[in-house]
Computed example of a mutant assay.
Amino acid sequence: MAHLTNPLVSPEQLASSTRINEALPQSAQDLIRFSTGKLTQAAGILLRLPQSVSAQAVVLLYRYWTIEELARDEFKDISAAVIYLTAKISAHPRSLRSIANVYTYLYSSSSALASVQAQDPKSRPDPASYYLSPSSYTSFTSRILLLEGHVLNALGFGVHVALPHPLAITYLQTMDIFSAAYSKSNGPKLARRAIALLNTALLSPQMLYLTHQPNALAVAAIYLAAREEGVNLPSVEWWEVFDVEREELGFLVVAFLSLQNWCAEMGKEAIGAMRKVDIAKLAGGEVDEEAEMAMMLDEKPV
């Protein structure tokens, strides 16, 4: 059953993560995780990766950040590194060229993710804005390969990620939600809502995927989805069948509920194409002009 469980972070690791990032305000830490998680998901969509691969990449990214400082690496680079690593060990590998092209586009003025103002839907993207020169490509891939090794070293090569999404569907089938005893629309509707809740939880500031096993996350998503959709589940304490205690279920349901407003608020503040210099400005610290100039030179077409 090891393939259905994840290595969880300990309270000591969470405390250590808090200490190494104490120079950053909590709001800045949340913004980094949320924005980089969104960036990783957007890259997964453009790379046509299954949602499962993108989700695993976000989990690995958050695991890495319990060990290393949030602002240690450029956010574009660490996001690309975990996407590259996660896709490589899956059935859907992607080339460095594809990943470089996608992240160059996401950080260009043609990308809706990078644009501060709403773009005119009739306007056409400017290909020149996401042109990747040979020198920039070489620099980018060198950084990604270096970071890939660093991520593997930091995680002790523990890159297994079990997701709760398949378990949620299996649990619904076990409870006969898709059977004739329920309305034909109830099963798919409940499943869609549960999966949506699990996808949202990936960006949780409480890092739920690092502190709870997939079976508990799946049960909590089903419980909350059933309440929201008005679907009656068995009247007995069915969650105990799936090895989840009432206390843990209650905590996770409250955490899921709090995410809805939190994500809406973070969505207003999130910086899609975030750079380290943005965090330095938000935190009120000094901007490393030398590092900023080096990044600009890397991105400048040659």
Results as ranks from 00 to 15, higher is better:
Met1Glu: 02
His3Ile: 09
Asn6Pro: 07
Val9Met: 13
Pro11Ser: 04
Ala15Ser: 10
Ser16Ile: 00
Thr18Asn: 08
Asn21Thr: 03
Pro25Gln: 01
Thr36Asp: 00
Gly37Ile: 03
Ala43Pro: 04
Leu47Asn: 02
Ser54Asn: 08
Val59Cys: 12
Val59Ala: 10
Leu60Thr: 05
Leu60Ala: 02
Arg63Phe: 08
Ile67Ser: 01
Glu68Pro: 00
Ala71Phe: 00
Lys76Met: 12
Lys76Asp: 09
Ala81Glu: 06
Thr86Asn: 01
Ala87Glu: 01
Ala91Ile: 00
Ser95Pro: 03
Tyr107Asp: 03
Tyr107Gly: 03
Tyr107Cys: 03
Ser110Phe: 07
Ser111Met: 03
Ser111Ile: 05
Ala112Pro: 00
Ala118Trp: 00
Ala118Ile: 06
Gln119Tyr: 00
Lys122Gln: 10
Pro125Asp: 06
Ser129Asp: 13
Tyr131Trp: 13
Ser136Trp: 06
Tyr137Pro: 00
Phe140Leu: 13
Leu147Gly: 05
Glu148Ala: 05
His150Ile: 08
Val151His: 03
Phe157Thr: 01
Phe157Val: 01
Gly158Thr: 11
His160Val: 07
Pro166Met: 09
Leu167Gly: 08
Ala168Glu: 08
Ile169Ala: 14
Ile169Tyr: 11
Tyr171Ser: 07
Leu172Ser: 03
Ile177Asn: 02
Lys184Cys: 05
Ala194Ser: 15
Ala201Arg: 09
Leu202Asn: 04
Leu203Gly: 06
Leu208Lys: 09
Thr211His: 05
Thr211Trp: 05
His212Pro: 07
Asn215Ser: 14
Leu217Ala: 03
Val219Arg: 08
Ala220Asn: 10
Ala221Gln: 10
Leu224Met: 10
Ala225Cys: 10
Ala225His: 05
Glu228Thr: 13
Glu228Asp: 14
Glu229His: 03
Gly230Arg: 10
Trp239Ser: 12
Val241Thr: 15
Val244Phe: 13
Glu245Met: 07
Gly250Ala: 04
Ala255Tyr: 09
Ala264Trp: 02
Ala273Gln: 08
Ile279Thr: 01
Leu282Arg: 14
Ala283Lys: 04
Val287Glu: 15
Asp288Ser: 07
Asp288Val: 02
Glu289His: 12
Glu289Asn: 09
Lys300Val: 07
Pro301Ser: 09
